[in-house]
Amino acid sequence: MSLQRIHHTAIICSDYAASKRFYTEVLGLRIVAENLRTARQSWKLDLALPDGGQIELFSFPAPPERPSRPEACGLRHLAFTVSDLDACITHLQQHGVAVEPVRIDEFTGARYTFFADPDGLPLEMVEPASGR
């Protein structure tokens, strides 16, 4: 077996319109497809990532909340590589998104920060250290 890359990450949201706006207008992801799955009362929005991967955004009636954040068992956060962390932070703040203070990874030297989507899903932006 030889895994090549992540194909997609699936996210279930509580407010489809708010999450669609966040991922397309704030994060700037391109819509690949949008479908209403009538039998499941669910929207499915496929969003393109620059590396060819995708985010699948789902809506379901009354999805349960996550047990805790961020140290619950399971997926901890979704991280995006960026080339200019400061510009990305400014962009998010201009859209009313709260951003944590920038940290530096003690092992890699990468600068990074966390923010959240409309449902509080932890998201991270990482600016790799130059030369690494």
Rank of each mutant, 00 (worst) to 15 (best):
E25F: 03
G96S: 13
H95Y: 15
R103M: 05
T38C: 00
G52H: 03
D46Y: 07
E106S: 14
F22T: 01
A48V: 06
E34K: 09
V26G: 07
L29A: 01
R40Q: 15
D46R: 01
H77M: 05
G52Q: 01
V82N: 04
I55S: 11
L27K: 04
D105Q: 05
R40G: 05
P50L: 14
S42P: 10
T113C: 11
R30P: 01
P61K: 11
E100T: 12
I11V: 11
G53V: 07
A33Q: 00
I55G: 06
A98M: 11
I11H: 00
P118W: 05
C73Y: 14
F107P: 08
V97Y: 07
R21W: 11
F60S: 13
E100H: 11
T108Y: 06
R37N: 08
R69G: 13
A33C: 10
E71T: 14
I104F: 00
R103Q: 10
L49C: 09
P67D: 12
R69C: 13
D46E: 12
V102C: 03
P64K: 02
P64V: 00
Q93R: 15
I11M: 06
E56Q: 04
C13Q: 02
Y16T: 07
K44V: 08
G109V: 07
S68T: 15
D46W: 03
P61V: 12
D51R: 02
I89C: 10
S83D: 04
Q93Y: 12
F114N: 10
E34T: 10
V97W: 08
E56A: 03
P61T: 14
F22K: 03
F114W: 12
F114S: 04
S14L: 04
I89G: 01
S19L: 08
V26W: 03
L49I: 09
C13H: 02
P70E: 15
A39R: 09
R103K: 14
F22Y: 08
L85S: 04
L85T: 05
P64M: 02
G96E: 03
T113P: 02
A116C: 14
H95I: 00
A39S: 15
D46A: 08
L92R: 08
V26S: 05
P118V: 08
A17W: 11
V99Q: 00
L49Q: 10
P67M: 02
S19C: 09
R40A: 15
F107A: 13
W43P: 00
N35G: 05
H91R: 15
Q41N: 14
S59N: 08
A72F: 12
D46S: 01
L92Q: 13
L29V: 05
D84P: 11
S42V: 11
R103A: 06
H77C: 03
I31T: 11
F22G: 01
R37M: 07
A98C: 13
E71K: 12
R30I: 06
A39K: 10
L75P: 03
F58M: 14
Y16H: 10
I89S: 01
Y112A: 03
Y16W: 10
V32G: 10
E106F: 09
